[in-house]
Write a protein that binds this DNA or RNA. Structure first.
Lengths: 234, 234
DNA sequence: AAGTGGTCTAGACCACGCT
DNA sequence: GCGTGGTCTAGACCACTTA
């Protein structure tokens, strides 16, 4: 099956190490041989061993510390990786026809909960955008977003009836840090109307807060249609 | 400009490349110079450039293809990484005192929805475990789990009044693939009782399906207390 | 056919953090 | 102090993919 390659690659080493952990050859919390010894065993250089172990540590199976050595983590810190797609891509990937609709876009001073949340000055000017994303004209996501005008002054010129605020921001503010939160919220009357669900319906919700350097740029609350599931393979 | 360190490390290169993307020096969809040229510019070896670009590609900023070169992704595929902690760790990390309580553990044939979901034979024998996790004696999570007896025969001997099923599985089945889903569900009467919330309350829910090789091992539905938020920095 | 990234070798120096 | 992993160099061959 595999290529008849004679050399031991870092992929081979990863596979072998995982097998030894799986089979219990290397018990949880036990120390692995050091890189030099493993390199000798696998007839390769320490560089190759290093890459294999480094990636396994990155993936949450090993813990590595200088001088202390490399240890098998007792309960692997499996990390879930979600690729957060653009709404349009998500809809189209599911075979739907995407449609965007602006609900409102208004300049407003930041309400108190927002100032506190984003560490803004009291009453700082914000662009408040609300919009809908449809898949085949069925409600897919309701978006409630605030953009800090001081951080993105061009936002006052943007035409959000033509382009969604997320698409606009991606094009305009090239780069950022993001804090992402998932939660379950309850559909109030407004939300129930936009998403076409009964009031009180549980709504899967994502909150994204975005910074440019240390400056807050935007907070978006994304309310997904009923029954939405966010899935990933680990 | 740069720090007085004379060598250019792969971290420096990552930083510089990100700055050039951020500042628009390298436009989205444009091609970067090849590794050899960058190595010359940064006065380092191609190996070092390679590591920097490889990691940036891994992080979703660049796309690399042999012969085609390295390209700036127009909309960076930012990936959210959630570290999924053990319940006990999560509670204790928040400063709470953890308590586990078994609700029920029974051998049952798999109901139809479950057989379909896990691709089981009809009526296959399952261990059905329900339990609660408390933080300072306040409900934190209700767990409803099914374990495939054929995949983990030892489960019939396990004493789930002493140890939680997740802890037990981690110790017993060393290794697996996982499918993780987040959703918002509604508290029915049972759930409302265990979590001490009104019926109908939106409940943040995680579903984990675990496989050993190709064999399904367990499906767990984890219902979190009201107001739970799952947060990550990207 | 040819250019690009993918990976490996053989060696070196260094920083961290146990003991 | 000193052993371990962290990183870099200089070079090589190779695999893939596109022109």
């Amino acid at each position: 099956m595999t290529q008849p390659s004679e050399t031991t690659s870092y992929r081979d080493i990863k596979r072998i190490v995982l097998e030894r952990i799986r089979s219990g050859t290397w018990q949880p919390d036990s120390l692995l041989p050091n890189e030099q010894e493993l390199a000798a065993e696998f007839s390769c250089t320490r560089t190759t061993v290093n890459r294999a172990l480094r990636e396994l540590a990155e993936e949450g199976f090993l813990e590595r510390r200088r001088k202390a050595g490399t240890r098998v983590l007792s309960s692997p810190q499996r990390q879930a990786r979600f690729t957060i797609p653009l709404v349009r891509d998500e809809v189209e990937a599911a075979g739907g026809r995407y449609r965007y609709a602006l609900v409102s876009a208004e300049l407003q001073p930041a309400p108190e909960w927002l100032s506190a949340r984003l560490q803004l000055l009291p009453g700082q000017q914000m662009m408040h955008v609300r919009c809908m994303h449809y898949s085949n004209n069925t409600p897919f996501q309701y978006e409630d977003r605030w953009i800090v005008v001081d951080s993105v002054p061009e936002v006052t010129q943007a035409d959000f009836s033509a382009i969604g605020p997320n698409d606009w921001l991606v094009q305009t503010v090239p780069f950022t840090n993001v804090e992402l939160t998932f939660l379950a919220s309850r559909a109030d009357a407004t939300l129930a109307g936009f998403l076409d669900v009964p009031e009180g319906e549980p709504i899967f919700t994502a909150e994204r807060i975005t910074w440019l350097q240390e400056r807050p740029v935007t907070i978006a609350k994304l309310y997904f249609a009923a029954g939405y599931r966010m899935t990933t393979q680990i």
